[in-house]
């Protein structure tokens, strides 16, 4: 039990970091679902694009000798904006090319298109990186400040990396909250999510709002990609699959289409996973090891969905006018 107590703060921190990561990715799934009632399965690759933009910017800075010279805060901001911009644009392009022409087709059709787009993007990234760097397994160059830790008392040390992830994620969530709830385009996004035809009758340019939603959701995924790279260092074109699947799960868990739900679902899933990874073997005296963390997390997920099929904060996404 002593051990269990001693590692608690560390596990909590890991869970929170993971939770924010899932939350940021989950937003892309949930926002697009909100306006189109469609799961963008290529969103995991939008996330990976962010991770690759991040590593490429860092490698280019390193090669030009600027990595050490420039202020790390400046580098991080550039990294995030570059990742967000490219992921956002990629998501917009994807919508234009792979989804919009299929609007009005049976629901399965755009889904298949999304899966196809997902494979295409994976191999496209692989192709580009192979041409350009002769490998598609890349490592983030280290930034010194990020390798430091901050000690709180004797038992708890917090890696600066984790603080970066949490602080950035909080800032992005706040920005998203303000965009969606306090601006005119935010009103338009929420109106389209409730009823696209009626939104059009209000003078809202529905296609533009859908594209914007892809951009915003995509850029959240891109930011998550950059943070993922900074935190775990290794990226490859297929690295989006597992985090994407988990984030999609988080979105469903929170209630697909519901923005606070995506954040909550991400956090629940991240915490469950971290606690399962550390505590399963302690609590079962080694019968179940950390490798069962996903089993545990998904069992809890299934239980929650049995009792709340629409997710924790879920509601019917698009009501008919009464």
């Amino acid at each position: 039990m002593d051990l269990a107590l001693a590692i608690f703060p560390q596990v909590l921190m890991d869970g929170v970091v993971l939770g924010f990561m899932y939350a940021l990715i989950a937003l892309g799934y949930t926002m697009v679902y909100g306006v189109l009632e469609f799961i963008n399965f290529a969103h995991s690759e939008i996330f990976v694009i962010g991770a690759f933009v991040g590593v490429e910017v860092l490698l280019l800075l390193e090669a030009s000798g600027n990595l050490a010279a420039l202020h790390p805060a400046f580098i991080l901001v550039v990294l995030l904006f570059a990742g967000m911009a490219l992921s956002g644009l990629a998501a917009v392009g994807l919508e234009r090319v792979a989804y919009r022409p299929l609007r009005g087709a049976p629901r399965l059709v755009p889904l298949i298109s999304a899966i196809g787009a997902s494979f295409f993007l994976q191999d496209f990234i692989r192709f580009i990186e192979s041409l350009w760097r002769n490998t598609f397994y890349l490592t983030y160059p280290s930034i010194d400040v990020l390798e430091k830790t901050i000690s709180l008392g004797e038992a708890v040390t917090i890696p600066v990396k984790s603080i970066l992830v949490i602080a950035t994620a909080l800032a992005m969530l706040l920005a998203l909250y303000l965009l969606v709830n306090r601006t005119k385009v935010g009103t338009a996004i929420r109106a389209v999510a409730q009823d696209p035809d009626t939104a059009a009758l209000m003078g809202i340019h529905v296609n533009r709002i859908i594209a914007l939603t892809f951009f915003v959701g995509g850029s959240m995924g891109g930011a998550a990609g950059v943070l993922f790279g900074l935190h775990y260092s290794l990226v490859n074109p297929y690295a989006g699959f597992i985090p994407g699947l988990k984030a999609f799960t988080a979105a469903v868990l929170g209630g697909i289409g519901n923005i606070p739900g995506a954040v909550l679902g991400g956090m629940v899933l991240g915490l469950m996973e971290a606690f399962a990874a550390s505590y399963l073997s302690i609590l079962t005296s080694g019968a179940f090891g950390a490798e069962y963390k996903d089993v545990f997390a998904f069992v809890v997920l299934i239980l929650i969905l049995i009792f709340r099929p629409k997710g924790i904060l879920g509601e019917k996404v698009r009501e008919e006018g009464v």
Binding site: T187, R190, A191, Q194, D195, D197, T198, G203, E319, G321
Partner: peptide, 27 residues
């Protein structure tokens, strides 16, 4: 498109009311 037609002053109050259910009256 519908968003342009509204701006010309043609306003359509649709059948079945089509209120935004998750907006307040004011919204």
């Amino acid at each position: 498109g519908p968003h342009e037609i509204v701006r010309l002053g043609v306003v359509h109050v649709p059948e079945g009311r089509k209120i935004f259910p998750r907006f307040t009256v004011l919204e």
